[in-house]
Design a protein around this nucleic acid. Structure first.
Lengths: 110, 110
DNA sequence: TGACATATATCATTTAACGATATATATTGA
DNA sequence: TCAATATATATCGTTAAATGATATATGTCA
């Protein structure tokens, strides 16, 4: 991914992918971490360092936005732009799986 | 991906994924670059720097092996271990797409 | 009151990818 | 024949991504 910012290419890293997925429902950081671990059944986990680094980046890029500061927790949700990029990225990943299934002898994906 | 070697986690980066896919048929480096560009219809391209860096890493990890040096070209092919890791990685990626399709309102993948 | 869960944050480090660049041979066509 | 282009391999130095370690503060509950 380096040398060129993945977001400028319109591509999401695995971590960004799951964090955006988590924020299709408004959540704060700690809940996002839990969401990722639960949704992936432990396959992937994101610690606080990655979490807040990526949250900051997604905010800067306008893919998520802060909402109502109830108490000390900071809530975020995905933006229209974020949802659009996430949807495109799902298609990109789907295409990768299909490429592989066509070449290997695996059950395809439709 | 940093801080921990992706191969030690049994995970492949996008570039490794396509290079391994290319080497399910014996090829040399230059053909691998072309394979990736063609297979992805230009969505992804790997230049020589990435190419040879990753080839070296996959050799070290025993996921590919050199075969018959006909002339100056170095041919490589995927090993049994490489194929096993590639297959697992396809499943991992398939799971990511399915997670997303379940949460977003997209046509699923079975 | 001590342990644990919840919650946010930063720094320094490692790994990954890659632009730039270099080198050499083969092919093609003006 | 000579220049351009394609084929083919290789390295160096840089940027970006992820994260371990660490710090801080509050809430809960036994």
């Amino acid at each position: 991914m380096p040398r060129t910012d993945s977001l400028e290419l319109g591509e999401l890293t695995d971590s960004m992918f799951y964090i955006l997925l988590a924020l299709t429902t408004p959540r704060h950081g700690y809940l996002v971490m839990q969401f990722v671990e639960e949704t992936t059944r432990g396959r992937m986990q994101i610690g606080p360092a990655s979490m807040y680094t990526i949250i900051k980046k997604l905010l800067n890029a306008g893919l998520i936005e802060p909402i109502d500061g109830d108490g000390k927790k900071k809530n975020y949700q995905i933006t229209h732009k974020g949802r659009s990029i996430l949807t495109d990225d799902v298609k990109r990943r789907q295409a990768m799986v299909e490429d592989a299934c066509a070449i290997l002898d695996m059950e395809g994906s439709q």
